[in-house]
Design a binder for these strands. Structure first.
Lengths: 212, 212, 212, 212
DNA sequence: GTATAATCGAGACGGTACGTCAAGTCTTATG
DNA sequence: CATAAGACTTGACGTACCGTCTCGATTATAC
């Protein structure tokens, strides 16, 4: 993998996400992540208490706090690892098809039990400045690389304006889903996802009224 | 009544948001909301503890819990009231201009101190099923009516496809902002907001590659 | 009893030793003291953890900390109550006999399992400024009243210099025992106690060499 | 050497107080004691954490635990060394004067900052069976030799009953002070010390009522 | 001189208890 | 009967210090 973020032990270059390293530490680190992943799946973020993680992993609380700044950070990394391999890129032949399919998949994920965990994780990062970087590094980054590949493919095909930033693309396509996931004001059905994607791809305004 | 949401006391018809009524209750209700609003402004969601609200308002905890299901619910309503009158509609003359301006304003709001409170509120509603309806009713609904007006104006002008749901419009325009607000992965500058709005209005794909 | 210190609930006049009162509080208070006494007897001061007291009494830690400033304080009061009735005054007919007997009894107490607890309690009060007053109020005070009675009897008999403060008497008779108990440098046997008492009663110097 | 207790390095013959020896060990030993003494003076026993001693001395925790059984042991030895030379014998010309002066000096010491450390040390030895011998060996023993000399002088002068054990003398004179130091029930003023000494020297009972 | 043990530093680790906090429930007395 | 006042249970928090334990590096003697 091109991102060095999802390995289990600490390396130089991880910046603020550093922690003790060495053979023992690596083992401890691993056990914590495995235990946390299990707890997340069983009871969501609320179950991934530091006490619970400690009890389940056999790693003491004090040690855990030497590796991570907060429970959110642990959960983010554990969850990021759980999701790491779950995202094969769609390849429908057209840019519109690929992006729409991607939105549908992400919507389906958000609607799944793990989608709830994702939402809780996003929520937990608000007001946990220490955990947020972990979430971005171990979860959002992975998502981002996937979209970037799709977008680059679209650029090569000439289907899109190359001036549009991939950041904006990501946020316009998935921001609405996340908003709905969090505030639960509209259901995350496949139909809704498709419509949303198509509207975003086409634009809200009629061509002749575009601002340019 | 088009907006039954922003009045200060309980009415029949509020459904799950009901609570004791009567003269004493109304006074109690009011004092709680005022105290909560003050606490929110001073220290964010974290400061709006039920204990703190109780102490500040002089209303006992037991009474508070007879009026609201959770602290999130109180905060949502108090915050919704704070924001109620702050949103004059933009009127630039063009649909694109109006919507872009709206996005810029919301972005600026999110970037402000009260934007943080908004984020904390959204986060708090995840995993507080009791509080979420309050947030939707007392905050999101207000936002929604504003956009609906703009959108209707656009429809009348013939600038937009009338089949596009206003729900999708709202989420495509503001979902990205909220996503950025929550995960803090991109700054909420005016420039970013403008670019985001324009991209959303125009669409991600080039006209000739539209899926239809 | 003349001292208002050993009752189970809070009263005006207890000064710094105050705590919540009322029917519920009184019950809570009682349960904590009973549990603590049991723990002390079973495992000494080390066993009387706040967590353990909480678990055993069914009273939550937070509540415990509203009633007492520290575990030492609880232990002191619980131990004081355990000891409250255990001290019938000796009555041998002579002042020397009474005081010597008292020293022997206290020495025997110190040599007993509960003597260890007493030592641990004294030790715990050093460096727990919050707990120390409880120890003095609920334990030392009781001891003091007993000696005072003996000393008054001796004064009435004319056996002693009325200018000698009862404080000095107490400390000269029992200080040595406590010193030995704590540092364990000499055994607390009946023989040693008797000799110590007699030496203290007679004085260290020969009469004709007295400082006066 | 009559007192093998106050030297800085280990020797065969110290019995249970043995530890590694050799040139390196001696240096390590020394550094630990110096660091501990400094910590004691700065923050009392509470500051003389094993971690703190390790950090300050540059000696690793593992090594420390090869030399001493517990932190109390280290503190006792370090404190004993600090006090080693501080006790010139009084020489007022009379036995009563010498002993009284001695009590006054010890009382003043107890009332000083280092007196607090002494108290904490005594307290720490209760419930630390491993540390207690160190305290007796490195601190009490020194005190004891001083009093023994005074007492022998008194015996030679014929001022005292030669049957009275020096142990009893020590405890009757200083036990009261220690008791007051620990439980803080009476102040350690010069006046109190003098009165206490005089009462102890004269005896609690009037001559004609002595038990013999 | 070099083996070969002891000894050391650095500090991670499991464990136990700490004292605190806020949520939400429950009791009692007052109006 | 709704309130005020606030005690109470619950459960998690993050910290502190303990004493043990790997490691690998450093001695210092015994060969």
């Amino acid at each position: 993998m091109s991102t060095p973020l999802s390995d289990g032990s600490s390396r130089a270059g991880e910046g603020i996400l550093a922690h003790p390293c060495g053979a023992r530490s690596a083992r401890v680190h691993e056990r914590v992540l495995v235990a946390t992943a299990a707890l997340l799946d069983e009871g969501g973020c609320a179950a991934a208490t530091v006490d619970a993680i400690s009890a389940r992993s056999g790693v003491s609380k004090a040690t855990i706090y030497k590796h991570w700044p907060s429970r959110t950070a642990i959960a983010a990394k554990a969850f990021g690892r759980m999701m790491a391999s779950d995202t094969p890129l769609p390849d429908t032949g057209t840019t519109a098809g690929d992006l729409t399919e991607m939105v549908r998949r992400v919507s389906a994920f958000y609607a799944s039990p793990r989608g709830r965990i994702f939402a809780e994780l996003v929520a937990a990062c608000v007001g946990d400045p220490a955990g947020a970087p972990y979430f971005r590094a171990y979860f959002l980054a992975g998502r981002r690389t996937a979209i970037t590949q799709l977008w680059n493919r679209a650029r090569e095909r000439g289907d899109v304006d190359p001036d549009i930033s991939v950041d904006d693309v990501i946020d316009i396509l998935f921001g609405p889903l996340i908003f709905r996931l969090l505030t639960d004001h509209l259901e995350l059905t496949e139909e809704n996802a498709t419509r949303l994607a198509e509207t975003a791809l086409t634009g809200l305004l009629r061509p002749n009224t575009n601002p340019s």
